[in-house]
Nucleic acid binder design. Structure first.
Lengths: 409, 409
DNA sequence: CAGAGTTTTTTTGGATATCAAATTAAATCG
DNA sequence: CGATTTAATTTGATATCCAAAAAAACTCTG
């Protein structure tokens, strides 16, 4: 019953290109995006192609309006003599992009230009979740309309929208196996959205989008392989291998929260036992505290622990140790050079405590090679949406350049 | 202290090619190897290139002596009319290859031609392990000499040798961080071997070589992504993603045996607690049995369990459940389409029991997509060496074709 | 300030790769 | 034996890519 052998695993490689120059176009465009501003001659060095080819491709990209020429960046070491360099950069006006995340209680959206510069943001509260797909579609449209209005742009101007959701999302098919936001399983949500609005949607699991944001703007900028762990309601993970997001065989990537950390362990929301989430998720912590009569939310519980309450402390303590164990397994499996712990909930920073991370480093398989770096990156609500926007920018770039090739022919 | 950004991760992509045709050469050669015998026109279809290009490349490969023309395979659906197809196949005589595995008590080696046909095999007992690198080198030479003698070939005829070892091996650098066969850590064993013998060595972790064997000859032939779990003294794992062996950031791949399955759990040989190996390794099982006065080896203990001895049974039972838990984590992390449980020790087949595997399937994150297939593949001693040979064939092919390109220019 | 020097970018010319179409080759069928 | 069919090769055209040359656009120096 296996899937077809040549099945498509990554969006990036989803179409067998006919144009022999497309690879160079993508590579040169990507070099410009990554550098911000860069002269042709430096592109030639980075992309390992001749200056002549860079000139040719750059001319195409300029004609297509995807990039523009600018004065070289002031702070780059300008050569004193000779013909001055002319820098290239992505043309912000080329496309209008939105990124959004559907969370439990609200939808956050951000409007960016093609360079990634923020033009507006908007948040729409959700009164009740989960919802049917049709209502999600309506809410998305509503959010995007308001978002565009804020920046004085029309909805129709959008060239693409990145959309992050919690749950099991197959990004290659814009398909949702399951999400806490949806009241049914196995939804062709991408098709529903694209039927309603005249631009492409790029769906992904929210943790993958954080990984994408870290890769483009954050701590993963200089790494080709890293892992992002996100902590929110649940625990999520995004894996970047060889500069690409790893999605596994079924397209929905790894589920860190449902890693097993205890044989026949605590009951998890997913119906199985011993999942990490059943030890570190907020509901899991409160469940334990409730046994001893604690009422109130996680913040209150955490405050009690900080005040020295032994019971509260032991709850967080165990969660921290379980988290460390899960993290050790991730590292042992993937052996990444870098692990980024990324979250917005300050309430859960007990998981990031120094001793937890030291425990992790000590428990990884030891060799005489540098241990994986573990970095903690806290950020705000909008970063999720920003990751979605980044994903959409990448997807639209790829598609545009691909189309460009076809039009040229 | 990170490694350089553009560091080489995979042998296959280790050199930035200058020759624009090299990609086609490799692809067409690989298509021939995979098919066994195949006509040019079918290569064109598979490799997505025009028949003209296939003709050109095939002529090159024929001239270089890497392939040869043969009558089409009888059992392939021969077209009745028209010009008959001429099949191409790898020329077995092109190169002489050896594969070998260094185990605890013996070295197994196999001599194959370039097609993978076995020409001879040889086993050399090791009197004591671990050994210094110099002695290992001497034993390898001794084994290879005897092996070649058996087939009436000279040692110097060898074009490459694949070598599998247990432990932490960096295949990209032919470097051993640690191995039970070596009496010291961090050994440049590849350099030592190549200084002693006039052909290249291709080192790898033994589990990766089993994965390679499964990919080329075994149950992984039709899968682009799968995982192999090997059970011998320890527990090993080989991961194939996108047709390539995944080795992680430090080049030595994942260590399934040291996955943590229990917080603050049983003491492992590696000095840490809660490793899977500390629950399913033979020494772990015997350790438990010893508490109750069991003397004798694992086979005896297993026999007792089969006879209904409750104590013995409970030992294997727990080991099976721990193994299942580790396997669930592997699957949750990598989401492979196929998992191959591969081993030679019948004594450990309790791990493969139906109920263990059913437990695994039930504990994986559930989506409405086919569950990963789990296959059990038992094989003999020589398969390890065969995997090593397969790895060497691949490496020598790549290198030869690359050299061909340079000579042409 | 003119020309020499330097560096970047573009243009030019040539070598190749690849493909579509045409041709040749080698068989079967009637 | 000619017609048909299919495979493989050759031919001719196109396009990529690069090295080298040329042009462009500066600075420096006497």
């Amino acid at each position: 019953m296996g899937m077809p052998k040549d099945r498509i695993t990554h969006f990036e490689t989803s179409v067998q290109s006919q144009d022999p120059r497309e690879g160079n176009r993508q590579q040169i465009f990507e070099a410009i995006r990554q550098a911000g501003r860069i002269a042709r001659i430096d592109i030639a060095k980075i992309a390992q192609v001749s200056p002549a080819t860079v000139t040719a491709v750059a001319t195409e990209l300029l004609t297509a309006g995807l990039i523009e020429e600018v004065e070289p960046d002031g702070d780059t070491e300008q050569v004193r003599r000779g013909r001055p360099r002319v820098s290239l950069k992505i043309r912000g006006d080329a496309h209008l992009i939105a990124g959004m995340k559907i969370a439990d209680r609200h939808i956050t959206a951000i409007l960016v230009d093609f360079e990634g510069t923020t033009l507006a943001d908007h948040t729409l509260p959700i009164v009740s979740a989960p919802l049917p797909a049709a209502e999600i579609t309506a809410l998305v449209r509503q959010t995007l309309t308001a978002l565009c209005a804020k920046a004085g742009r029309a909805l129709e101007e959008l060239a693409g929208v990145g959309l992050g959701m919690a749950g099991l999302v197959d990004a290659t098919r814009n398909f949702v196996y399951w999400s806490p936001s949806l009241d049914q399983r196995n939804v062709e949500i991408g098709a529903a959205l694209e039927a309603d609005m005249p631009f492409p949607f790029f769906l992904d699991n929210d943790a993958n989008l954080v990984a994408k944001a870290e890769q483009l703007f954050g701590k993963g900028r200089d790494a080709s392989d890293f892992i992002v762990i996100t902590i929110e309601q649940g625990v999520g993970m995004g894996i970047v291998i060889d500069n690409r997001i790893y999605r596994g065989g079924r397209g929905c990537g790894a589920e860190f929260g449902h890693t097993k950390v205890q044989l026949d362990g605590a009951m998890c929301r997913c119906g199985q036992r011993g999942c990490l989430e059943a030890y570190v998720g907020d509901y899991a912590l409160l469940r334990e505290a409730a046994v001893h009569g604690h009422k109130g939310d996680l913040a209150a519980l955490y405050a009690r622990a900080k005040d020295g309450d032994k019971l509260a402390k032991s709850i967080f303590d165990r969660a921290g140790r379980m988290f460390a164990m899960g993290l050790v397994n991730v590292i042992n499996f993937f052996d990444p050079g870098l692990v980024i712990l990324s979250g917005e909930q300050m309430a859960l920073d007990f998981l990031y405590e120094k001793e937890v991370l030291e425990k992790v480093q000590a428990s990884v398989v030891q060799v005489d090679a540098p241990l994986p770096e573990i970095q903690v990156h806290k950020w705000g609500d909008l970063m999720w949406a920003k990751g979605a926007a980044a994903y959409a920018i990448e997807a639209v770039s790829t598609q545009t350049i691909r189309k460009m090739a076809r039009n040229a022919a």
